[in-house]
Design a protein around this nucleic acid. Structure first.
Lengths: 217, 217
DNA sequence: GCCCTAATTTACCCACGAGTATATTTAGAC
DNA sequence: GTCTAAATATACTCGTGGGTAAATTAGGGC
């Protein structure tokens, strides 16, 4: 999950590998727990919404008390941000995976859409879609905007590539990316994990729709 | 805005038209003010979000105090619901307008999309999109779901009509409606009223995209 | 002028929830 | 076994904001 920074920093006055092995274990442990906090929060946010979820709720779902949560996370806002980031990372991975592909733009776009749908139906989906500026401080909000913009740029450049290689009809790349992202993001609003439709099937229908269009060919 | 119920109820012991004219005026006055409350709330919700907008905020934007707001509306939840309803009414109007049209399904769908985009860029847009179950009591939530479902059914039946008359390629009408609604609803997330693009232009691009698809023809 | 009702205000209450100061437990290091 | 630091808990503070009781003002009707 979302890469934490420099673990294994300079071992002041080194004292054998055993020491740092165990410290490393502790650090990993901490990260695992931190991730558990974030995932629990993500699910809670999705089920009840950000403002209807108290940190006490999250804590008690983890069988733990509130200060423990604060031991892993700065504050509620950061918790939302981490959920957001974890979700977006899934999408970004999908985009990056296609960077080295030699397929046509349209094919790569389809692959990204599939991963996007997968990500948006996860517990993080709700957070990604709802982590709106409004609940975040200006600083966080800027970061969120920056990350969202990366995704947007990724989509646009795939569209551009498709137009360039002739696999996509020339179109307004900005509006197309918006429509695509909108349709995909909106899944988070209606999708229930017990849905008959798996994310991959939804993606398939969307790809077909966006590729072929409504007008008969 | 959103039809209130029975005004001009039985004038107990009628006493001339003048009386009821003025009573009527007062009722109209009340409704105008109530609408002002709702519109102010809608704008505030859009700008700062539901949970970040206090009733004191709304009141002071109206140059009035909180109990006055409560004089026009039951509680905060209902305020959100009214915003939601006003917005949805705009969309429903668009759909109903097309009922008697003789155009093809695809053409009627395009007309509905245009109205939809118009509605979603209004101050009510945010409320429609965000008035999620989560902030509403079960009762309200049910009503919201029912109204949303009406829109959904409207879209689907247009798609069905289009498939039937041959103007729309046979497709999964449910997923198509979801994708369409998602792309449109999402506009509320990125649209700023000072945007270069007018709602009508956005709609135009969306219609083109959904009709022609990405694949070159 | 007086009455009655609707509109509006002042001045509250109180629950909830984010965040914290401080104590306590746990576990690794030596 | 003891020292230390991390992990967790207990027991708070305090602001915010939804909601309300009660008083005050405005305005139409006669």
């Amino acid at each position: 999950m979302a890469g934490r920074q420099a673990r294994k920093s300079n071992p002041q006055r080194a004292s054998g590998p055993a020491l740092w092995a165990s410290v490393g274990a502790r650090v990993r442990d901490r990260e695992r727990k931190r991730d558990a906090v974030i995932m629990t929060a993500a699910r809670a946010f999705r089920e009840r919404g950000y403002h209807n979820t108290s940190l006490d709720d999250i804590a008690s779902e983890l069988n733990v008390t509130k200060p423990t949560v604060y031991h892993y996370v700065e504050n509620k806002e950061q918790l939302l941000f981490e959920c957001f980031r974890s979700g977006l990372a899934l999408i970004m991975n999908g985009i990056e995976e296609q960077r080295e592909s030699t397929a046509t733009g349209r094919e790569r776009l389809a692959a990204v859409i599939a991963r996007y749908a997968e990500a948006i139906t996860s517990d993080f989906g709700w957070c990604m879609v709802q982590a709106e500026n409004q609940d975040l401080s200006p600083t966080m909000s800027r970061k969120v905007k920056a990350l969202k913009s990366e995704i947007d740029q990724g989509l646009r450049s795939l569209i551009r590539a498709g137009v360039a290689d002739g696999s996509i009809r020339p179109c307004d790349e900005k509006m197309t990316a918006f429509a695509l992202a909108g349709a995909l993001n909106w899944i988070a609003h209606w999708y229930r994990s017990d849905d008959k439709l798996a994310a991959s099937e939804i993606a398939q229908r969307f790809i077909e729709l966006f590729e072929l269009g409504l007008q008969p060919r």
